[in-house]
């Protein structure tokens, strides 16, 4: 049984200003937007922290559904993604509550900064997930596995309800401070839960 749940704290992943701007709705070059981003990220980045908790589980496809070890899931999109995988990594990641606090404060003082904060938050959590998945890919490559892209509840036909099972299994509340509310949203808002498939590499 691979039920151990691990926690990792990451150093700040490299910040990608262009991505943050894109998430904030800025698609081209703009001096003013860059300076707004610089000011906002200067205030925000030191306040964030980067945490992931995860576990490895056996996965088996039978009778049209995937037994992922923590839940039985029928989803065509997930089945396609996990095709040929015999194990999965289930993870939850967050950049913490400080981003929500800052965004809330900006929304009282400056809408444009509040929006920038959202863009920065989106970029940060994506960068954290990328960093984590890259680590996992490296670690499992040595054991002869390749990783699928990460897949989250709400993608395609994978129901958001799965969040409840993920939370029951990973218990990220105490480990990294993510909670699930009744409408299946997470707090902090910049949090992600996802599944990564591990597929044995064909020589």
């Amino acid at each position: 049984m691979r039920s151990i749940i691990h926690t990792r704290v990451y150093p700040e992943p490299k910040f990608r200003p262009k991505e943050a701007l894109r998430y904030a709705g800025v698609f081209g070059e703009s001096e003013e937007m860059l300076s707004l981003l610089e000011e906002t990220s200067g205030e925000l980045l030191p306040r964030l922290d980067y945490k992931v908790c995860y576990c490895e589980l056996d996965a088996a496809f039978c009778d049209g559904a995937y037994d992922l070890g923590f839940a039985l899931v029928s989803s065509h999109a997930l089945a396609r993604c996990l095709s040929g995988c015999e194990r999965i990594i289930l993870f939850a990641a967050t950049i913490g509550l400080e981003l929500d606090r800052a965004a809330r404060r900006y929304s009282s003082t400056s809408g444009s900064r509040a929006l920038m904060a959202q863009g920065i938050g989106a970029e940060r959590i994506e960068s954290l997930c990328d960093a984590f998945c890259l680590d996992i890919a490296r670690e499992y490559e040595a054991q002869g596995f390749e990783c699928t892209p990460r897949f989250s509840p709400g993608y395609g036909d994978l129901p958001l309800d799965l969040q409840r099972d993920i939370f029951a299994h990973l218990k990220p509340e105490g480990r990294i401070g993510i909670t699930l509310n009744e409408s299946l949203l997470m707090t902090p808002t910049k949090s992600v839960t996802a599944i990564v498939g591990l597929r044995r590499k064909v020589e």
Binding site: V26, F27, S30, M33, L36, S110, S112, L115
Partner: peptide, 14 residues
């Protein structure tokens, strides 16, 4: 017309 971005729209509104 997508010449101005949302954050700029907000800065103008402010």
């Amino acid at each position: 017309e997508k010449r101005i971005y949302l954050p700029q729209l907000l800065m103008s509104a402010e």
